[in-house]
Computed example of a mutant assay.
Amino acid sequence: MSMSLPNNRHIVRLTTTTVGAVMWVALLAGFYVLVHCPLHSHEKQQEERIEHLQKLLAIDSNVHTAHRELRKRVEELNAKIDTIRRRIPVRPLEETFLSHTTDIAKEERLAIGNFRREDSKDFPDYSEVDVVISGQGSYGSICRFLHRVSQLERLSTVRKLSIESDADDGNYPFEVIYALQFGMQTAVDAKQGEEVL
Rank of each mutant, 00 (worst) to 15 (best):
S120H: 06
F115R: 05
K106D: 06
V63R: 02
L70K: 10
L152T: 02
F115Q: 09
T157G: 06
R117Y: 06
S162F: 08
F97K: 02
T83C: 07
T65K: 00
R71S: 05
E153T: 10
H40I: 08
I59G: 12
H67K: 02
R91T: 07
D122L: 14
F123C: 05
I142G: 03
N114H: 14
L93N: 07
E95C: 05
H67P: 00
E47Y: 04
S127V: 10
G137M: 01
S41V: 10
V149D: 09
S138V: 07
R109Q: 11
L146N: 10
T102N: 03
E95I: 05
R117C: 08
D82H: 06
S156W: 05
R154G: 03
L56T: 13
I112E: 01
F97D: 01
S127F: 12
S156I: 09
R68I: 00
R148A: 09
R91M: 09
V149M: 07
L161A: 07
V129I: 12
A58T: 11
D60E: 14
I104S: 01
Q54S: 12
G135I: 04
V131Q: 00
K160F: 07
L93S: 15
L152H: 04
R148P: 04
V63N: 06
V149T: 15
I84Q: 07
E107L: 12
I133C: 03
S120Y: 04
E108S: 09
E51K: 13
D119R: 08
P38D: 02
S162P: 00
G137W: 00
T83F: 09
D82R: 04
T96A: 12
I133E: 00
E47T: 07
R159H: 14
N78Y: 06
L93E: 15
I81H: 10
E118P: 04
E107Q: 14
H52P: 03
D103E: 13
N62A: 14
R49K: 08
H147F: 05
R87A: 15
T83H: 08
R116E: 14
R109H: 15
T96G: 07
R109M: 10
S156K: 01
T96Q: 04
S61C: 13
R154F: 07
R91A: 08
P89D: 05
N114I: 08
P89R: 13
E69Y: 01
S162A: 13
H42Y: 11
A66F: 01
D125Y: 11
E153K: 11
N62S: 14
A105F: 01
T65M: 05
